[in-house]
């Protein structure tokens, strides 16, 4: 199958339909398609993550009993949040309905609070792209008394 495609590329080159550079690029692309061969027995189909997870485990003032993520000490805290990425997308779509006059008022209030962000410049497409690429996000903070993890699953 692969040889057949390679032969077709070479034939197109010999007939002058494509240049040598184009032929090289096509053959490279064919090689790239072939190279990620699946490991024996394993499936390469990577499922897209569905949820955004935020896990915070804090052992402040506790006697170190939160190692397994179980709270119970005096100051230990545990936060476990799972939000479907679809919900974030729906939220972004809903936020795009906010009327411009409300955004300008929000801008004015933000500026008064010292946050100089122009919300009108924030396009829904940009936010959607941001959510689209969230599945590659991993935040892992591990300090002496707290552990924070943000990831998609």
């Amino acid at each position: 199958m692969m040889n057949e495609q390679r032969r077709q590329v070479l034939q197109m080159l010999s007939e002058g339909k494509i240049t040598a550079e184009e032929a090289e690029r096509l053959i490279d692309a064919l090689d790239r398609d072939r190279s990620p061969s699946p490991p024996a027995g394993g499936s390469t189909t990577k499922t897209r993550p569905k949820y955004l997870r935020v896990v915070v485990i804090s052992d402040e003032g506790a006697g170190g009993d939160g190692a397994a993520g179980v709270s119970g000490g005096d100051g230990s805290a545990r936060i476990n949040i799972r939000v479907p990425l679809q919900l974030l997308r729906a939220g972004v779509k809903l936020a795009s309905l906010v009327p411009p006059q409300a955004l300008t008022r929000a801008n004015a209030e933000l500026r008064r609070s010292g946050v100089d962000i122009d919300l009108t410049q924030l396009k829904p497409q940009q936010l959607e792209e941001l959510i689209e690429h969230l599945d590659e996000l991993t935040v892992d903070i591990d300090s002496a008394d707290a552990k924070v993890q943000v990831f998609c699953e």
């Binding site: 805290a77 545990r78 309905l97």
Partner: peptide, 28 residues
């Protein structure tokens, strides 16, 4: 001055996307 159809669609999408949401907060 918000599109009622858009708002209804957005709210519906939000409700449809809710299953799977989980908030768990423990302090002591």
């Amino acid at each position: 001055d918000v599109s009622p159809a858009g708002a209804l669609r957005g709210a519906g999408r939000l409700v449809w996307a809710l299953p799977g949401t989980r908030f768990e907060i423990e302090q002591g």
